[in-house]
Design a protein around this nucleic acid. Structure first.
Lengths: 146, 146
DNA sequence: GGATATCGTTAGCACAGCTAACGATCCTCA
DNA sequence: TGAGGATCGTTAGCTGTGCTAACGATATCC
């Protein structure tokens, strides 16, 4: 098997694994009452501090109209707050509310718990190998963005 | 860091990586003119031979009404064909057309190519490590289904 | 043969993604 | 300084995915 075929096969398996992983985790997301896109956007706002709608849209790799609706949904649930920028009044700054932070951490914990449980079933050595693999995966995904 | 915290952190990073990976690949899916769910369902039909709508829905972890529409979409594009079962006339058997097979392979190649390119940038040793990680990931995901 | 179960579809809802178009605001520079 | 162009966020309208509830057709069980 050449390196090139390896890469194809590996890419294909990785793609499939990612799809099935997220399908499993989506069930946990549902339990939190927040959809995956909302949860993901909320996470960026909580950890990335206040940022504009456009920045948030770029961070989530989504167009502004889509982000407008996601933010509107989060705002209606009281998880996020729109705030006009004084310097540039075209901008809308978005920041998390205390409730938003709370919900995020609770939801994240619940969502990841199922996966963490499965990870804990591995041998210690396997966990280390998986961690290395995930690190490489992150590098690979990062290099795809360029 | 305890093994438990390791598992949490690893699970979280894995979740995030999977989300971003699929967001990148979705752009390639769009180029094929087929959405991810349709591509995924078509793949099951092509590789899994003719199967009923209910079986397909279970395989894709989706409810029957959702699969009805996915199949209807694929059928309108001529990629798939509905066929009544003679033994049990409640059943609808679904099978791929030659065009469906062709499109699937072309689409899969295009979609995975971007990822494969990124994988090829890794060192040979890193590819082996990533492959091991993906194998473990597949095991982990499989163990979550039970 | 009549009750019950199963299969796929239809109807109707919520949400996410897109493009096009628009108003408000800011910036440039003549 | 003030007119024209650029940028930001929103609205409108389309497609597609996911769900539940309800229904008709068919099969099965007693």
């Amino acid at each position: 098997m050449t390196k090139g075929q390896d890469a194809e096969t590996l890419a294909d398996q990785l793609h499939s694994a990612a799809i099935h992983l997220l399908r499993q985790l989506r069930k946990e997301d549902d339990a939190s009452g927040l959809s995956a896109p909302r949860l993901s956007a909320l996470s960026v706002v909580v950890f990335g501090g206040p940022l504009t709608l456009g920045e948030l849209a770029r961070a989530e790799q989504v167009k502004p109209p889509t982000m407008t609706r996601i933010v509107t949904g989060l705002e209606k649930e009281g998880l996020v707050k729109r705030k006009g920028d004084q310097r540039d009044r075209r901008l809308t700054r978005i920041e998390a509310t205390p409730k938003g932070r709370k919900i995020l951490f609770a939801g994240r914990a619940r969502r990841v718990e199922k996966l963490a449980i499965a990870v804990r079933r591995l041998e210690k050595k396997e966990v280390a190998e998986l961690r290395r693999g995930v690190q490489l995966l992150r590098d690979v995904v990062a290099s795809m963005r360029g």
